[in-house]
Every structure is written in structure tokens, then in C-alpha cells.
Computed example of a mutant assay.
Amino acid sequence: MVGREQDCVKHVYDICFEGTTRTQDGQCYTQTEWENFCTHYGCLTQEDYLGYDMLLGMCKCKVDDLEEICDLECRLAQRYSVEFICSDPPVVRLNWYSDNYQVDIPVSSLTRVINARNSIMSDSCSALDGSSEPIHMVEMSSNGFLGVYEPDMDQTLSLLTDNMKGALNISRVSTSSSSSRRLLSVSVGRYQNMTHRSRRLMGNSFLPGSNYLGIDNPTVCLKYGELMFFSVSNDYYPVYDRDNLYNTNDQFDYGGFRELQEAQALIGTETTLFSYKFRDPGVYAFYMSTNKDRKMYVRVMAESAQCSEDGPFFPTTPRYIIQNGISIEQDILLTPDWVLIASMLAGALFIMILLVIAW
């Protein structure tokens, strides 16, 4: 129940009577209430409001065109721009594909990253065999979540070095056959930009100075065990929406998100990076710390299963919600219908009185 996160108690929801439909938060809305909520809260602006879907319990809002921001070829090409390499020792690798070089950052220097020990340390590797997995970037701002496509490598490197522990060496590796490997000594927050490239204007970040582009408040499909990096602040960070009716796994271990909330809200940490490895198949809803109406939905596939479409970030529309197998939980506890119960008892009493009189 709300405010009793440690108790194993199921929510009890009101019955939605005729003329109302249930939201993903469990409330019953009339058409007028739906329109008011979606117009003023659910969509980013009033002009974005298009309607609502009563079966999915969601607002229908204008969204950016995924194909314009990053089409299929783009999504496949950028998938390993940031990756976790299970080498000995493990590293986070940034790839400048257009300039033919990489930067490797030992994960041992990233212990300041919130939840790093549970997501990007050697224990997260089944073997230190050089295998790799993508790291998907999400930026938090006053606008909510931004699922980043084609992350700006200079900005990403700066984000990582800002969250390193002290001054250290990282390796810059040329991917061209004629170049050799060399080490670059950097201090936290002092790494100079290596490249500059033009960026499109669609789906741009709401954070001043950020070059990230992507999908606002997305629906996400991840393969089993995939990693996400969240760029966060003390004001803006993701919170697990544990009472959302889209959630499918009551056993989801969201301890990393509780740790993040404590670090940002109570401690006021200077750390601006949070990592999480999604090992639990299911559907999970998250909201932005300062606005519960800015949400991100994550579908985690079972082992060896594939997403229906290469992403991982999709606009939150009824099509992509359904495509990723997301729907409102129907097996919920409802409050007793006291009107119906009272009517039945009154009817039974009336029949008993008639029988007594007749006898």
C-alpha cells in the first residue's frame, strides 16, 4: 500500500462504474476527468493532447517521429556506441565511429557511479572473455526522460569522467590499422573535447548545454540483462512507480532505485550518473522525481527472447505500448460493491418476510 513499501499488502481499488474507466494508476476517470488530466498533466503541452485510450489507461499525445530522429539503420549502427566490455579488467568503452577511435574507462574507476557495484563490476560478467553488451543512455531533465539515440561521445565522456574517482589514466585506442595504442592522463572533469559533429534539432534535450537527442518519456524494450545509464541530478532522477498497474513483476528488485532516491534526495550527492542492469523479465513503470506524470515504461524480455522491433526507445503511443506487451493489470482486488450487497440483502429479507406471511 502507499507509504508502506515494505509491507506485503495488495492494493484495494475502487470499482469503476458505468461511464468511468481505470487509469494505469488505478483511479476511475470520467470522460471529462480524462480530458482534463491529459490536457493539463498527461501531455507535455495542452497543444499535444489528441485524446485518450480507455483500454490502456493512457493519454494520447503528439510525439516525435522515431524514423526522423533515428531510423532502423541508425538504431542498429549506434547500438554499441557505449558498451560494457567483459575484459580483464572490465571497461566501459566509448566509440567514435566517424573518427575511428575508442576510449576505454576501467570500471574500477567508476565506483562513484550510483549502483555501479551491482551493474558494471566484474561480478556482472559471466566470464571475462572480452564479450560486450550495449549501454543505453537516458537523460533526466524537467521534461522527464530522454531516451538517447546516437549519444554525443564528447558529452558522454565528460559525464563519465565527472563521475570518476580522482585523477587516472584511460586508454584511447585507434580502430584504424595504421595507428598505435597510447594512454591519455586525465583528471576528473578536465577531459577536453575530442571531436565536434553536427546534430539535428529534433528530439533535443531540455538541459542547457546538452547535445543529446532522442525520444521523450519513451516506452523501452530491453533484452534480458541489458544496461542503462541515467544522467541524473539532485532534482531529476527516476523513481520506480511501484503501484502502477502496468507493472507485472511483484518481485522486481528495485533496490538500486531506492539507493538512487536516497542519494539524490536525502544526501544531496554530487554524483550525476546512475547505472542499472535489468535482470528481471517483466514490465516496469518509472516516473520522474519531481513530476509523477512524466513516465517511462520498460519491458525486459526473458532470456534468449527478442524485442519485436529494434530500439530500445520508442514513442509512448498505443501502438508501441501494445507492441511491447504492456497493458493494465486486470487481476486486482476491488472494494465491495456495498450498494449491490445492500440491495441483495434487502431483496432476500423482503422474500423471507413474504414467505413468513404466506405461511
Rank of each mutant, 00 (worst) to 15 (best):
A342S: 10
F252P: 00
D162W: 03
S308P: 07
L66T: 15
S308F: 05
P312I: 14
N36G: 03
Y246G: 01
E303W: 01
G26L: 12
A127Q: 14
V173A: 07
L266S: 12
K223N: 13
T39M: 12
S205D: 10
T272F: 06
S131F: 14
L76D: 07
D253H: 06
T20K: 02
S87N: 08
G42T: 02
L201H: 08
K295D: 03
R199Q: 15
V298R: 03
H40K: 09
E5Y: 02
P89I: 06
C8Y: 07
Y13D: 06
R199E: 15
I332T: 15
L72Y: 15
S198H: 13
T219R: 02
I120Q: 01
L227V: 07
K62V: 11
G225N: 02
D293W: 08
W96T: 05
V9R: 08
L159H: 09
Q27G: 13
K10I: 04
V113S: 03
L333R: 08
D310Q: 10
G268T: 14
F84E: 02
A302H: 12
M137G: 02
I120T: 04
S124D: 02
K295P: 03
L184R: 13
I328F: 05
N95Q: 13
S308C: 07
R172A: 10
D71M: 05
R294C: 04
L183N: 12
I114D: 01
M164E: 04
N244P: 00
G347Y: 00
M301Y: 09
A305R: 12
E133F: 11
P281W: 00
Y320E: 07
P238W: 00
Y236W: 14
Q46E: 13
P90M: 03
P318R: 07
D331Q: 09
L201V: 05
S141Y: 13
K292S: 14
D310K: 09
A265H: 14
C74M: 01
E226Q: 12
F37V: 08
G282F: 00
I326P: 00
N100F: 12
A127W: 14
A302K: 13
T290A: 08
L354H: 05
L183R: 12
N324C: 03
T335L: 08
A346P: 14
L56I: 08
S180F: 12
S158I: 01
Y276N: 02
K60D: 05
T161C: 04
R200L: 14
I215H: 06
W96C: 06
M121H: 11
M228F: 00
A302G: 14
N204Y: 05
L354I: 11
E33M: 09
I332G: 02
S132W: 02
L168A: 07
V298G: 07
N115T: 00
D48A: 15
E139W: 01
T195I: 04
L333N: 07
P318T: 00
N244L: 02
I321H: 11
L349T: 15
S132E: 13
A346L: 15
F313A: 10
N118S: 02
E35S: 05
L349K: 13
D88Q: 06
F278V: 00
S179F: 09
L260T: 11
N249H: 10
A127K: 15
N163C: 01
D99S: 14
N324Y: 01
T316G: 05
F350E: 00
P218E: 08
Y191F: 12
T290W: 10
G255I: 07
S119R: 00
D71A: 14
C61M: 07
L56Q: 10
D7R: 11
D104L: 15
Q31M: 12
